[in-house]
Design a protein around this nucleic acid. Structure first.
Lengths: 192, 192, 192, 192
DNA sequence: GATGAATGAGAGTTCATTCAT
DNA sequence: CATGAATGAACTCTCATTCAT
């Protein structure tokens, strides 16, 4: 009866949006974008279908929301790169990658499956985000390699970038992938 | 007067199947499996929707057909691995990878986008095929590394496997990826 | 402002379901199950095709719904059988049959056309329902015949069962069938 | 090479038509008209789809052909009715009915399922044929009953007609139907 | 006479989206 | 803010029918 204050409304909005985003992320990651219906998301979030359209204009906009949420908290990675010793920094990065893959299985899958689509413009924004992240990593890798005094720092950085993606892809693809073994070998090879 | 001979029929069937497979491959690779409708494939192939079902029982069977077609001609790769000198063999593999990626852009995209789906059982057959190929490469890599006399041949083989996939993924994803540069660096690093 | 109350929703759902069921019954009875498309039912009901699938998972489930609706109100028949005097009970049954056939023309047609299909398992549930009803009638007939003191009560009951079906089938089949005459003769013959 | 004579052609035509009719009858009776595809009939007959359309303009015309074939040989029944003694004639009819049902299971099913459809005009011809047969039986029944000297011969004839159909329907519907028992009881009741 | 590749209308079904409440 | 009944376009798939050979 009593009209809600602006703050109350804002809080409600935030909470609802969060519920929707978490449900969508969960299902997108597990079953893929195309195999997840808006109804399923609503059910999973415990809200109505209509409410989703109060916050997102379309299923695609909702996907954008999910992606943006995901991209926000990669701070750990960049913290790791701040270490003095390049060997230590690399070791941290390798371990972070391993933990990320183990904990957030499905997210990498989602990112790949989306970014791999070519539909004109549809996920262009995602490509831009990923491109940017990738360039960031490349810069970090290169400076670490320079610190380590290797000959072709740029080349080694590119290889490291490819390694990160390759390992992620193969681990995502097959549960039998020897992730621990590979990471250990990487540390052995790169961090001393 | 007389009905068509068996050879005539066989030729017609082969030609139609090819038309369908090429159209399907094209669209699957460009837009993904889910974003490609059977109608679109028919239109692209210049035939009727119904004809596709004369040759494939379902859209999924058609996909299998496409995959099988793709898997047929990977003989080059294994020829390359037969060279005496492991450095030469590796150089050939790197160059073949480069050419494959440049010439068959889209195919790798398709393979990734399909294998990354989680839909239970639906693309399981593809996973099996890829797993097998991957193990094949791994074996080859390991024996090459052993020939080269490196310490941890298995570990290096795993890294090479990841590198192949990582490079393929990144090149597939971004046209700006410095493929030539990376391959040159790989040759420099691994083949001497 | 406020979403609809549960009662409002329930009422809407009931009304829609009824519309669908009535339309489906109408068309199934007139044209048969196979000759009635879901689109036609929607058109007949004045709603969209999609709505039907909000209430029934498939055309077959809709058919089940129709059957269940039909089976609900056969109470009259069993009331009639409770009369003391077997002659009176039989007379009531004959009259009820006549009225049922006249009023619900098409329903019997539907039941027959469905139960006569052989598609394995598809309409099995219907066979079970009918079998049960039939056994019920048979039991009643036999006890009435026993009360009347006829020699072979079981045999007479079977004949009565066949008569009911035969009359129904012939009346359903041909508008010229002398239903009144037959029922009168039955009463004359069996109820005194 | 040598052109076939008219007789040869006629013979070929007859043989092909027969193959088609038998295959169609078989499948229609087993699976129903709607669940039998023209392709399936061709396969069952060991000929091509196209050939069917050389002889019948449509699937419906083929159905008509099947029906006509079926209606041709009911001579047995009318032979039976020629017997002097009405009791003997009836007994023969009852036994013929039993044998017909046992041997040609599926045909009655087909007849019922078709005649029960209401689609305007589609199977009208079938209704006419059946109507005619039915009137024929009725006439026979009535004359037999008159010979037996029952009071209301017309009424008894109608009942017998209904009994025939009712028994046929119930036997067709359920394998558990006690056909032997019912026929025996009929003979007991009507033929002495 | 005989074949079967090819067609295309129409079937059942799904689902993103709208909107009255 | 929140609901879910309702829509309809688009999907995969079937099949009677045609026609070049």
């Amino acid at each position: 009866m009593t009209p809600k204050t602006k703050e109350q409304i804002a809080k409600i909005r935030t909470r609802s949006k969060d519920k929707i985003l978490m449900a969508a992320l969960d299902l997108f990651a597990k079953k893929g974008y195309h195999n997840t219906s808006v109804s399923a998301i609503a059910r999973h979030a415990g809200i109505s279908k209509g409410l989703i359209y109060n916050y997102y204009d379309s299923k695609e906009e909702l996907l954008k929301g999910v992606i943006e949420m995901l991209m926000e908290d990669s701070s750990e990675f960049f913290l790791a790169t701040q270490k003095e010793d390049p060997n230590e920094a690399l070791r941290s990065l390798f371990v972070l990658l391993k933990n990320y893959l183990i904990e957030k299985r499905g997210l990498y899958r989602l990112a790949v499956s989306l970014s791999v689509q070519e539909e004109v413009g549809k996920f262009e924004f995602l490509k831009d985000i990923i491109e940017e992240k990738f360039q960031g990593f490349l810069t970090v890798f290169e400076s670490l390699m320079t610190k380590k005094g290797v000959k072709n720092a740029k080349g080694e950085a590119l290889l490291l970038g490819a390694l990160f993606d390759g390992i992620s892809l193969q681990y995502t693809f097959s549960e039998k992938y020897p992730l621990e073994e590979v990471i250990d070998f990487l540390i052995e090879k790169y961090c001393k």
